[in-house]
Nucleic acid binder design. Structure first.
Lengths: 214, 214
DNA sequence: AACCTATTGACCACACTGGTCGGTCGTGCT
DNA sequence: AGCACGACCGACCAGTGTGGTCAATAGGTT
């Protein structure tokens, strides 16, 4: 269907993808305006509908593209994850935050698209994402070394707390992340990850047996 | 300005307030439709513009009303808060969650209204909310008993963690809260608060000196 | 020249907007 | 009864923005 589009110059194609994703994520499927997309992407209305038969098809392409992108970005990094929850989840968060910092439009789009309630946006593609998410949640929860936890600690609750702290940190630094990634690249980003680890270290002391806190 | 509206039958007035808040919160200021509001509230178009001179004025009324409501709901409960962070913040969360469970439209509206980027929605009223928020953050942070924390614990980070856990819990149970509040009232709600406390207890053990964990 | 394809942007019918206004109706006063 | 009043109604308005179309064009290749 989208041979025309795929054959496009990479720069132009990426510009269209980015602007379209941004528009969809900011205004939702229904209120997203194709006029606005073509204006921001610097192409003509006709061109957009030359590449994609309809708004819906554009959305579906973006969704498919987004899932694929996320897969490629995260999958290789989580093949063999350590059995230590902290190490594992920090690594996972690092990967996730890196994508979110380097491709904020794409990350926003995927998040919002998943919870968009316009019927046109609620297509079979959700299944695609679900499979992808299930795959991940397996890799995230399967094979954690529970023996490191102190006796008397409710492990399920401990995991939940660790997760909330990771999410909380990520959320609180979201905007900073994007700016930092743009201005300073790796190093500024790594400093934030380090700070995130310092929060988790406090939990490690709390939840792990003393001999497991190395 | 809104004497007509205020003089209205309470039931009708609340219906309009609720539906209007819901519409604004789900679609944002700009995309909210007065047609939809009157339809859902079961009044005529003429009536709405009889009560409020314009869409903007309706929004401002709702905002003002919302701030007042929150004040009345939370203020009395946080006058004399305990110096123990856990007790204090649990109580605060309880109050906040209760409002959110019993008046979800209002809670959503206040949250979304504050971050709406339509210029009409970014009025001086933000100041009103800011003052209200400052007032709260004082009551929340001022006079906490830091002496209970173990030596070597970074208190600022500990507070942050506690906060993230409270937020995380609230977010994860959001939908459940609304249903539970509607179906079972107090008791179901209290069970959730109890569960929330159990998470915090784990942190109390971690962060507090042993003699302060009673 | 002739042909081809990618691209343009003026244009379409239409959906829907916030707001208006002539009119209806119930109520209370004279 | 006649009258005035004000709450309320909903058809209607001009305006805006929509997704999508299509004749015209630009630019390259033969």
């Amino acid at each position: 269907m989208h041979e025309n589009f795929i054959a496009l110059d990479v720069e132009k194609r990426d510009r269209i993808i980015n602007e379209a994703m941004r528009e969809f994520s900011v205004r939702g499927y229904k209120n997203a305006s194709t006029n606005e997309i073509v204006r921001k992407a610097g192409i003509s209305k006709g061109a957009l509908f030359h590449y994609f038969a309809s708004k819906k098809e554009l959305f579906e392409f973006l969704y498919h593209y987004g899932v694929g992108f996320m897969m490629d970005a995260i999958e290789p990094g989580i093949c063999d994850m350590p059995s230590d929850v902290f190490e594992r989840w920090i690594e996972f968060s690092r990967l996730k935050l890196k994508v979110a910092a380097q491709h904020p439009d794409l990350a926003d789009f995927m998040q919002k698209a998943f919870q968009d309630d316009a019927p046109e946006a609620r297509t079979l593609l959700k299944d695609e994402f679900s499979r992808f998410a299930d795959n991940f949640s397996q890799k995230i929860y399967r094979g954690i070394d529970f023996s490191k936890f102190r006796q008397g600690v409710d492990v399920q609750k401990a995991l939940q707390i660790i997760w909330w702290v990771l999410e909380g940190y990520a959320l609180s630094k979201q905007k900073q992340m994007v700016d930092l990634a743009r201005l300073r690249g790796e190093e500024g980003f790594d400093a934030l990850i380090l700070e995130m680890e310092s929060y988790l270290d406090m939990l490690r002391v709390s939840f792990y047996k003393e001999e497991c806190q190395a």
